[in-house]
Write a protein that binds this DNA or RNA. Structure first.
Ligand SMILES: [Zn+2]
Ligand SMILES: [Zn+2]
Ligand SMILES: [Zn+2]
Ligand SMILES: [Zn+2]
Lengths: 137, 137
DNA sequence: CTTGACCTTAGTGTGTACTCTAAGGTTTAT
DNA sequence: ATAAACCTTAGAGTACACACTAAGGTCAAG
């Protein structure tokens, strides 16, 4: 398959496919005489793996590690794979916690403000951000 | 106050202070004869505002908007300020939702894998990422 | 036979929030 | 007087995941 066909089938851009190739995530098996990329079914399968890994939150760097393990499965253990997964999950959990704190603070701020068309001279959001202990109480 | 003193007092780097100045967030009121930045108490107060706004999740661009409103409070309404806050809160909520889906998927993946020292030939994480409907069920 | 739709490479631009560097001037202490 | 510790500027580098561009080669349809 040519790059355009793969791109259409998987709903990605040809740029993305070339980008992944450049960064060692997906090398098409063959090239045509004219030098065109020629993707095999196995290449397509690998691209689906990559996209699914992205869907669960892995970065491209992490996916590259997963692919390296997948390629030589018999040289790696379940432990390694699970470690990567758990590490990622915990990192995601940390970020969720941080963003949840943001959300909480923003909610508190929003509730303090009347939101009316009056002038912002005494807006509680602005004064709270000015005050030292505005959000810690 | 000189830049180093401000930096020490607020636990930021002098680089950060110069960066904020360059990007229009905080201009020190004066310069000394030698060209050194000379921060006033009001400058310090503004820097605290910026840091507190960062703490609740506003980006520097958003903080710049807030500062512009704060500077001319009598030309802006509570509505504007509250809008910015609500928009940000909703955006954060979206991101939390996305990351929570990631977390859920990663947990499902992790639970499927034994995590032992055996070879990864049949690792459920890898096979699930390969399968089409692995995570949708 | 030419038009348009594809394909190639290599390189640059985007946004975020800094961080670091180079090359040099100033201040304070010994 | 000189060294240490500050300060200045402008500009480059970092991570992430592409998107876009230029300049050109290839191929199918009309
Ligand atoms: Zn109000
Ligand atoms: Zn208000
Ligand atoms: Zn196992
Ligand atoms: Zn496993």
């Amino acid at each position: 398959m040519k790059i355009g066909e793969v791109a259409a089938q998987l709903s990605v851009s040809t740029d993305t496919l070339r980008y992944y190739e450049k960064h060692g995530l997906l090398m098409p098996s063959r090239r045509t005489e004219a030098g065109y990329r020629d993707y095999s079914l196995s290449d397509l399968k690998q691209m689906r793996f990559i996209l699914r890994a992205k869907d669960v939150g892995f970065s491209l760097t992490e996916i590259k590690e997963l692919l390296a393990i997948k390629l030589y499965k018999h040289q790696h253990s379940c432990h390694e794979v699970k470690s990567l997964t758990i590490q990622k999950r915990d990192l995601v959990a940390q970020r969720v916690a941080e963003l949840t704190r943001f959300h909480q603070s923003l909610s508190v701020l929003a509730e303090k403000c009347c939101g009316g068309e009056e002038l912002a001279d005494n807006c509680s959001i602005l004064t709270t951000l000015e005050d030292i202990d505005g959000l810690t109480q």
